[in-house]
Amino acid sequence: MDLDGDGNLDILSGSYSRDGEDMAGLFQVLHGKADRTFAAATVLNGSDGQPLILPTRGGRDNITDRICTRPFAVDLDGDGKLDIVSGNFTGTFAWFRGEGNGKFTPTSEPLPATGKLQVDAHSDPFLIDWDGDGDFDLLSGSSAGGVFLFANDGSKTEPEFGKRQTLLKPAGHGHDGDGELVFGDAHLQGPQGSTRVWADDVDGDGKLDLLVGDTVTLHFCADGVDEQTARSKDAEWQKKQQKLFESMTGDDADARAQFQKAWEELRAERETFLREQMTGSVWLLRQQ
């Protein structure tokens, strides 16, 4: 989107956390240039000159509130100024109102909603008039996968998001790692976990389609190992792993170091017969 109104396409991104200070994912902008190249990323500040940061409920247990999983720029209240709606690790949605020309209020507010507005974790806001009634509806992926719709039951100037509807059922946590070991990627039939969503009429048929990114762990046999052997050895390895976890006692530094050493040795043993590859794909879901 053109965040600063200079006519050039900019890239807006969230981030996991800054270094050296309390955990907080900063908003980063790669400003577009007239020649369609981009400047290096810079931190997006609020109109007070300080970095925009997501709110937290406070306390050590809620530090993930500030991990910025995805910001999305949109004129949500129809005042002609771009706002930012952001997701976080916790799965909620924050709204930084725009002040025009790429400026945003320093503090955010929760998106107005008729009920609980949350996904299981890793909220991923994308706003578009999904139902064609003239206002912005909220789409989101999530850590567990799937695509969710929160229709705007309010208006173009006073949004209020309704109950969660499922457009794509979540694959679930660990979907690719549970049950019988599957090799390669030929078994993949659709988006897995940690979904990231974009909606547009990709195929030009007049209907909004979904582009869905995901995360998956693939398994391959190590060199010179056949699938039957890898499967058999992994079954034994899983028992060893369970035994290791059950044997972990104490929370002092020595106990943690001992556990870490044993865990690394066990991981190395697995790599002699099995190779894991974490990756992600992009899926097109054409609306019919």
């Binding site: 457009l167 582009l211 794909s281 899926w283 097109l284 879901l285 054409r286 019919q288």
Partner: peptide, 10 residues
Amino acid sequence: GPQFAPPVRL
């Protein structure tokens, strides 16, 4: 709700 064709891995 909306119906989708089977997902296509791009």
